[in-house]
Design a binder for these strands. Structure first.
Lengths: 94, 94
DNA sequence: TAAACAAGTTTACATTATAAACCTAATATT
DNA sequence: AATATTAGGTTTATAATGTAAACTTGTTTA
């Protein structure tokens, strides 16, 4: 009846991050913070969880002299996102 | 950009309960437990939260000699569910 | 009449989300 | 040239949440 929802994606902020990356394929920390409206601390933690799950990759470098953290979706992450959307539909359908 | 997700509905079990009630308008505890696959304890807690939020009503009676708890969606609950679905779309759209 | 069962509820525990506090380096300010 | 401020994060502490185990109350069944 109801498909199980991936607990990693069933989280407002992590879902928002994934949503941005599905559309952009690449986004840095500052962009994600602004796009999601999250605090830096919260974002940092959630990026970490997504990274450890293999859903995104993180590349730390510099933009000029400022540190820059670039995030990208992995194929695993995209698959997980798509599966999550499918699963959600079992809850939303009339 | 992203609409806020009602934390009361952004919960796997509570969403499942609401989903059943949106389609059925009426369901008892046992039916909900079977439809959602939840444990009775968990279901009891989540029904309580939905009731306190005014999203559902609970009517306790008897079916023969067995206690029976019938749940129904309120207009407030339906509105909340619809708003939640709308908000979710901002996360799922490509 | 005692054991098992049905329908829930309460409680305890473990996980999670979140923001406050913190760190480090770079740029302004006096 | 010292000192404050800002930018970009990370760590840690706390509060909220989800979950199932244990419990309760009444009813069948052996």
């Amino acid at each position: 009846m109801f498909k199980k929802l991936d607990p990693l994606l069933h989280s407002e902020l992590r879902l928002a991050v994934m949503s941005v990356l599905v559309n952009l394929e690449e986004a840095d920390f500052v962009y994600l913070r602004e796009a999601t409206g999250a605090t830096a601390g919260n974002l940092s933690v959630q990026i970490d969880k997504l990274t450890k799950a293999g859903y995104i990759t993180v590349e730390k470098g510099f933009k000029g002299k400022k540190p820059q953290t670039i995030c990208r979706l992995t194929p695993t992450g995209l698959k997980a996102f798509e599966d999550y959307v499918e699963a959600l539909k079992t809850y939303l359908a009339k």
